[in-house]
Design a protein around this nucleic acid. Structure first.
Length: 498
RNA sequence: GACCCCGUCGUCUAGCCAGGUCUAGGACACAGGGUUUUCAUCCCUGCAACACGGGUUCAAAUCCCGUCGGGGUCACCA
């Protein structure tokens, strides 16, 4: 009898990505829900790498996925890097288990060899759209099999589906019954000796003592196969929960292809993978909060909540059945609020890590400058990209002058006059303090009978290149007197150029 | 095409399981107003949904059936 580590009733969930690219946002939600369930139930969360597709799996992808999981803060109690009692956690390292069970099932008469090549099967399917595997392997005589093997012909092992209906008791969808006639004898062991997904998940979930399987709804039709397999092997069924699909705004499944489509159409590609959102300047906590609400709701009007509260309030019963569109506008709003409400320590950490994956002048910031920038931009940035771009004039002297702004505020009256006058007055200030700067500007306005807008905008454009920035006196203060004056000079000569 | 799942504001959703308290609540977006030196924030107001058709019932967003619509799956991919 196997000992179940940590107690018999312990909830064990897992996330089992295949390493064929970055972590998809939908995968991240599956991982999050599984993680939340384990945390809430004081159980264990396992990360397992399903690298049974030799053609597509890469070590690089594995690393990317681990990195994205860590960045999101979804830690695992068992899996790559941390190990665990039920390892290894890479399916490619568990081949012996699958082979032995395949043999066992064959000995039991529940599985059999088939020598048909992938090409043959594809040809059958091309001929008949509704083609279902015809059990041709089962019709082979022992002599034929021996002869094929003597020739060294490759074969697969197929599972013999039982002749009965199978009901999935889904925690979200309820009971879903599938007629056995809908299912064919599927391959469990490929000709390269690797298991198929169906075989590997069932065995691994069993050996890793997984109690709850949360996965996308696209797996619903696979589940009867897994249940049949579990029955044949005499192992328990984990509880299943099939999550609604995440749609793009067009109403189709949100997929990596959306990126290629956008590029072809000459548009900027949408964020699809977790890493895209990371580069896009989103905070992991905002992403987690947002995707948690794609299908799940705590039941009251609560939306923004810390992860600790999500853990507390999470329940599979409150996951809905309807597919959800991924509304980036709402994510942006969430992200803005997370940036605005973040403790300074946390925001500083996030902002300092950001240049690791991007390249903005912000990366050259010293701590004092960064802190001042944060004072101004924490309340007014929806993403770190906005923050980095809008504040770039602090960190580089390569100012890009917005043409419209230059025309409107510098080249028109009283632009030049304002700059030359204020340059002298600011240069003469005894102390470079925000209040002193503000007063200088205000006094100037009063004296010249000019509205604040007439004065502030030319300065703003001169110093930042843009007509948009935090309040002028704070901006100047942070920039420093030296840079302020030299940029005023530059702007003045720009005006005089023509 | 076959099988399966789903269907409340433009979007995410609460309400549905245990019908009445729903002239359907919240959030994002949008529109208008206020604050303001620009932008953003912030505050106020507004717009806006039970897919459709039948039942059951004194009463249906809530239960049943059908239609339509959307989606998923049909691999030696996961």
């Amino acid at each position: 009898m196997r000992h179940i580590s940590g107690g018999c009733n312990m909830v064990v969930t897992r996330f089992a990505p295949s390493p064929t690219g970055y972590l998809h946002i939908g995968g991240a939600r599956t991982a999050l829900f599984s993680w939340l369930l384990a945390k809430q139930q004081k159980g264990r969360f396992i990360l397992r790498i399903e690298d049974t597709d030799q053609a597509r799996s890469t070590e690089e992808s594995t690393q990317k996925i681990l990195q994205d999981m860590k960045w999101l803060g979804l830690d695992w109690q068992e899996g790559p890097e941390v190990g665990g009692p039920n390892g290894p956690y890479f399916q490619s390292q568990r081949l012996e288990i699958y082979r032995q069970w395949a043999q066992k099932l064959m000995a039991m008469g529940r599985a059999y060899k088939c020598f048909a090549t992938p090409e043959e099967m594809a040809a059958e399917r091309a001929k008949d759209k509704g083609f279902k595997y015809d059990r041709r392997g089962l019709k082979l005589t022992p002599e034929q099999i021996a002869a094929y093997e003597a020739e060294g012909r490759p074969c697969v092992i197929r599972f013999k589906m039982p002749d009965k209906d199978i009901t999935v008791h889904d925690m979200i969808l309820g009971d879903v019954t599938l007629k056995t006639s809908e299912l064919e004898d599927f391959v469990i062991l490929k000709s390269d000796g690797f298991p198929t997904y169906h075989f590997a998940v069932v065995l691994d979930d069993y050996y890793m003592q997984v109690t709850h399987v949360l996965r996308g709804q696209e797996h619903l039709m696979n589940t009867p196969k897994h249940i049949a397999l579990q029955e044949a092997m005499g192992v328990p069924h984990p509880a299943y929960a099939h999550l609604p699909v995440i749609f793009n705004m067009e109403g189709g499944k949100m997929s990596k292809r959306d990126k290629e489509k956008a590029i072809k159409a000459g548009k900027t590609p949408p964020e699809i993978d977790v890493f895209d959102f990371r580069i896009g300047g989103y905070m992991p906590e905002a992403i987690l909060n947002f995707i948690a609400l794609l299908g799940w709701s705590p039941g009251n009007d609560l939306e923004l909540m810390p992860i600790s509260q999500m853990i507390e309030m999470f329940s599979v019963e409150r996951i809905g059945k309807t597919n959800a569109r991924f509304d980036r506008e709402k994510l942006r709003s969430f992200n803005m609020q997370y940036i605005k409400n973040a403790p300074r320590d946390r925001l500083r950490e996030v902002v300092k890590q950001f240049p690791e994956v991007t390249d903005y002048p912000m990366k050259n910031a010293d701590n004092a400058m960064l802190e001042k920038m944060l004072d101004l931009y924490q309340p007014r940035s929806r993403t770190l990209v906005e923050m980095a771009e809008n504040s770039r004039f602090f960190f580089t002297d390569e100012i890009h002058y917005d043409t419209k702004a230059v025309e409107k505020f510098l080249k028109k009256e009283p632009g030049e006059q304002v700059l030359t006058d204020l340059k002298d007055r600011l240069a003469a200030l005894p102390e470079w303090q925000p209040h002193a700067i503000e007063k200088t500007i205000e006094d100037y306005c009063t004296e010249k009978q000019l509205g604040m807008g007439k004065v502030a905008q030319p300065i703003r454009v001169a110093v930042t290149g843009s007509s948009v920035s935090p309040s002028v006196h704070e901006t100047l203060e942070v920039l420093g007197r030296k840079k302020t004056l030299s940029r005023l000079d530059n702007a003045i000569s720009l005006i005089r150029q023509n």
